[in-house]
């Protein structure tokens, strides 16, 4: 004979859901899900499938309410624009400081042991937690009057091609604007991420490491401001294609 006592649905899914859905409809949604979970168990006696259905509905409901919240209140278009501006300028300044810092030092011997290892492994962002970086880079940027320090051919070519491609996509009336925003973000950080992964698994002499690091950081440096501008404009003219 079947056990008619109601079973407990997946506790973790229930907890996550109860944290994320509005209080006004929490009981109704959790109640409906539990009722369906028990009905499925009674009808098919398949607990695995019942748990799978519960998780599926819970996750779909979760994403639904996260999407509604971010659309309605949490991140209004104006707030997103402000966040994009702040992030864009911060990343630009940090890449500028990294370039001026790295340009004025001779070889990996000029760095502390931990920093030299981080650079050799393709992690220049670790400089941000080094006091040496913050002490020196602001001083050096004042003397960075040689524009040649700010030119790197490969990264410049990548940046020009990327900006051209994004501009073309923006002109296409029916291109999804959210897609352009994600693509732009990927383009900015792609050389940095690929370079970082590449150096993690390969060991090269210092000059070659320097060249790869330059390509990584300069790509971010060249692309951050144009992409910030594109994203800012993109958010101000959101349309129904999203």
């Amino acid at each position: 004979m079947k056990d008619l006592k109601p079973a407990q649905p997946p506790l973790f899914a229930e907890k996550i859901l109860s944290l994320c859905i509005p209080n006004t409809i929490k009981d109704e949604i959790l109640g409906d899900l539990e009722e369906e979970f028990n009905a499925h168990l009674i009808r098919f006696s398949n607990k695995k499938q019942a748990r799978y259905n519960y998780w599926q509905q819970a996750l779909m409901t979760l994403f639904q309410f996260i999407a509604i919240r971010s659309k309605d209140s949490l991140l209004s278009s104006n707030r997103q624009q402000i966040i994009v501006l702040i992030l864009g300028f911060t990343i630009f300044i940090i890449s500028l400081l990294l370039i001026s810092w790295l340009s004025h030092l001779d070889g990996l011997g000029s760095f502390s042991q931990s920093m030299a290892t981080a650079l050799a492994q393709g992690n220049p962002h670790k400089a941000l937690v080094q006091s040496q970086f913050w002490q020196i880079s602001f001083t050096q940027i004042k003397y960075a009057n040689n524009l040649a320090y700010f030119f790197q051919l490969e990264a410049f070519t990548w940046a020009v091609c990327s900006i051209f491609m994004i501009s073309l996509l923006r002109k296409k009336q029916f291109t999804n604007k959210k897609y352009i925003r994600y693509l732009s973000l990927i383009i900015v950080f792609l050389p940095y991420t690929v370079g970082s992964i590449f150096l993690q698994f390969n060991h090269y002499p210092t000059p070659q490491v320097g060249l790869i690091l330059a390509q990584m950081i300069f790509s971010v440096f060249y692309l951050t401001l144009p992409v910030t501008y594109f994203t800012f404009r993109n958010l101000s003219s959101r349309n129904n294609y999203e």
């Binding site: 109601p6 649905p9 409809i25 009981d27 109704e28 959790l30 109640g31 409906d32 539990e34 009722e35």
Partner: peptide
């Protein structure tokens, strides 16, 4: 069967 929750 609804974990003691009411229907709406």
């Amino acid at each position: 069967e609804r974990g003691g929750r009411a229907k709406r």
